[in-house]
């Protein structure tokens, strides 16, 4: 079941933590980020979603202050990432897509070392506990599994107790179980009152985690809203999909009130319709007709469908 967007904490006025106006960045004649503008509110999980190469990483690096934009203005926590870089980095946490630690360093050593770079830092052992790795403080970082390594990097991004955390492609290359563990961590971060700005190309991740998303394609933002609102605006239909081996009465399905149309491609049957009563209607009809079916599942419109509708392209090429 898809989750609808999560309720905000009741605030009189949502504080804005990131403002980007007309952000533009070019490399060798290619416009990676094409004059985008957006805002991020305090306490939310904001996602920049789009296929690889859409310009997400360039955009997030400009906001972090690691890259200088060609044009546009950026304000993070009221500071200019270029001019007030050091001051800003005391208050934010950054997690990188790729490992980037010296070889043969141990988990505890890395956390202890990086904690010393900040004016104020938390007890790193507590952080390790929070991410579920308290027994791994003496382990070599390069010997950890992918999921464990990502959790260490998250801990590193939280060392200075930041108000705002940047996560770039957090779960790329992780198995589903590790991915879910990391998602739980992110929600925990938000529960503690921090703002999260993340980039991802996994629509499921964006739907699951983000309060609001900006869908990015070729350097432009094509939509910004809560995932639930974007999907609802499609007014797309739900689908029930199953396989049959023998012929059956398709009319029995078409007669179901919420069904709009039925398609059959070889063994596969797709029933389109409104969500309410669709699944039960289909199953009842098949049951009554004593039709044998297998692999029955429901499909809802997702952000992938939103992307397709907005750009005319599939997310995955």
């Amino acid at each position: 079941m898809m989750r609808m967007n999560k309720p905000f904490n009741i605030k009189k006025q949502a504080d804005i933590v990131i403002t980007a106006r007309g952000l533009l960045k070019q490399y060798c004649g290619v416009t990676a980020v094409d004059a985008i503008s957006f805002e991020v509110h305090e306490g939310e999980i904001f996602g920049m979603v789009g296929p690889n190469g859409a310009g997400k990483t360039t955009a997030i690096e400009c906001i972090e202050g690691l890259r200088k934009p060609d044009r546009g203005s950026i304000r993070v926590l009221g500071l200019d990432p270029q001019q007030d870089g050091y001051e800003l980095r005391e208050r934010i946490g950054i997690q990188f897509q790729s490992a980037a630690l010296p070889p043969r360093i141990k988990v505890g050593e890395a956390l202890d070392l990086f904690a010393s770079f900040y004016r104020k830092s938390v007890e790193w052992r507590q952080l390790l506990e929070q991410v579920g790795l308290e027994s791994k403080d003496g382990a070599y970082v390069e010997n950890l599994s992918g999921g464990q390594r990502q959790r260490v990097f998250i801990a590193m991004a939280l060392l200075n107790n930041p108000e705002l955390v940047f996560l770039d492609e957090l779960t790329t290359g992780l198995d589903p179980q590790s991915r879910r563990a990391v998602w739980d961590l992110i929600e925990d971060i938000r529960k503690r009152g921090r703002t999260v700005f993340l980039t991802t190309h996994f629509m499921e991740e964006a739907e699951r985690l983000c309060d609001r998303v900006a869908i990015v394609d070729h350097g432009k933002i094509v939509a910004i809203d809560a995932p639930g609102s974007l999907i609802a605006s499609l007014r797309a239909e739900n689908r029930v999909v199953f396989n049959v081996v023998e012929p059956f009465d398709e009319e029995s399905l078409r007669r179901i009130p919420s069904v709009s149309r039925v398609e059959r491609i070889g063994e596969r049957v797709i029933v389109y319709g409104q969500r309410d009563g669709l699944v039960s209607g289909v199953v009842n009809a098949l049951d009554s007709g004593a039709t044998r079916f297998n692999d029955l599942r429901t499909e809802q419109p997702t952000l992938e469908d939103v992307f397709l509708a907005l750009t005319g392209k599939k997310m995955r090429s």
């Binding site: 050091y86 005391e90 630690l101 004016r119």
Partner: peptide, 13 residues
Amino acid sequence: AGVLRRFRATPLR
């Protein structure tokens, strides 16, 4: 390896 960049993402001078 991006190690220097990782350092640069902190307030380290």
